[in-house]
Simulated scan of single mutants.
Amino acid sequence: MVHSPVRTTIQAESGIPFRLVYADTKAPQNELPDHLHDWHEIIYVYRGQGTIFIDTGLEDMQAGDLFIIPGSTVHRALPDEVNPVTSSALFFSPGLLASAAGGSASFLLSLFERCRRRRVYKRQLAVDEQAKVRTFIDEIHAELELGNPLSAHAVLLHLQLLLIFLERLEDADPASSAHSSSGPGWLSAILSNIDDKLRGGLSLSELAVQAAVSPAHFSRAFKKYTGMTLTDYALARRVIMAKEHLLRNDDTMASVADACGFESLPHFYRQFKKITGTTPAAYRRTMNA
């Protein structure tokens, strides 16, 4: 059976485009496949250890870590088999804040754009900062459990307060946002510039030569550390690039397909819909509405 490893559909809660997965312990066999969605995501780690693949890099996961993941970023958590991570994950549509926060929405979302631009998604929290983040998450969870007519509004308020808190942390101590890469150095080097190779097509043998390993070893290591095959990862990156082109300009679909390295216009339409659930034209209309 053909399986798409990067598409995730997020179910909203309380009638708003928001979801909380609360204090969840994921065994390796139960972890979601690599996923790619338009919602922003915040992950807080309570305990355990593991690795998370985000965008083009690998990060260690341990107690007190916070991950800020912008929408349309390929990512997958890879929990430790003996001591898996217990974490809470908050998902929300950027449009949620546009309607709730008005002119402040761009400020509240700037943290995600900085993370995307810098490709730094992890923040190591101090003990008092961990307690504060846990309190915000607990309050959101309590409101969702309560489920009364004002719960959705309360969830929005707590989410905005959490984002304000994180923005102020970044202003006060930007150095706490840091890399803690795991995996072989050659893999990080390959991933850091893989987008440049997408238009011309990726060659496993050429990448293996660049990494100074055999093609078989390259494939095994790539799958082990990223949780996906090179083909699946390249497709996800092409779809992300296509989304950016569709929103950034009025280029024709043929131009977008060519710029992102798709084999043909029909191939672009077919793969884009498989990953996102919608056509490129519908995606452009919806996101620009």
Rank of each mutant, 00 (worst) to 15 (best):
V133E: 05
G277Q: 03
K223I: 07
D258T: 10
L78H: 05
R7I: 01
D232I: 02
I190S: 04
T8H: 12
I140K: 07
Q130Y: 07
K132G: 09
H179S: 07
S4V: 14
I240F: 00
D232Q: 13
T229G: 15
T135P: 00
K274M: 14
P70G: 03
L108G: 03
N249Y: 07
E170H: 11
L90M: 04
E145W: 01
R270D: 12
E145A: 13
R117A: 13
L97W: 01
V120I: 15
A189I: 00
Y283A: 03
L150M: 15
R270P: 01
I16L: 08
L191I: 01
S88W: 01
E244H: 10
P174I: 03
H153W: 11
A98N: 12
A236R: 07
L32G: 07
K273L: 03
I137V: 13
I137C: 06
D65E: 08
S106N: 13
A211P: 06
Q130C: 15
L166N: 01
I10S: 04
G183C: 02
L202R: 08
M61Y: 05
L157Y: 11
Y283H: 02
S264V: 02
S4I: 14
D128E: 15
K273D: 05
D65A: 06
H217F: 12
D196T: 10
A131F: 04
A234T: 08
A175D: 11
L125W: 09
L162E: 04
L202T: 07
T279H: 04
T73W: 02
R168T: 05
F268L: 10
G50M: 04
H153F: 14
Q62C: 08
S93C: 05
N83H: 15
R116Y: 09
M228F: 00
L235W: 07
G102S: 00
A259C: 02
E170F: 10
E113A: 11
R284F: 05
N288A: 12
R199M: 11
H179T: 08
V133A: 10
A152Q: 06
I194H: 05
Q29E: 15
G183M: 06
G261N: 07
R168N: 14
E41C: 10
S110G: 09
R114Q: 14
T276Q: 07
L150F: 15
V133G: 03
E139V: 00
L97E: 01
V85Y: 07
G48W: 05
A259I: 01
F107I: 10
W39Q: 10
I140M: 15
E143Y: 05
S177A: 12
F53Q: 04
T56Y: 10
I16R: 06
H141Y: 10
E59H: 14
P79F: 01
G183Y: 08
T286V: 09
G71T: 03
C115R: 13
H158I: 00
D195S: 08
S87C: 11
S151E: 09
Q124C: 11
P184Y: 08
V213M: 09
G147M: 02
V74N: 12
R119A: 12
R285P: 00
L202W: 06
V209Y: 08
T226V: 08
P70C: 02
F165D: 06
F272G: 04
D258P: 00
H158R: 14
V74D: 05
L207C: 04
L166R: 00
D232P: 04
G201R: 08
P28D: 06
L198M: 08
E206V: 10
R119E: 12
G64N: 08
E59Y: 15
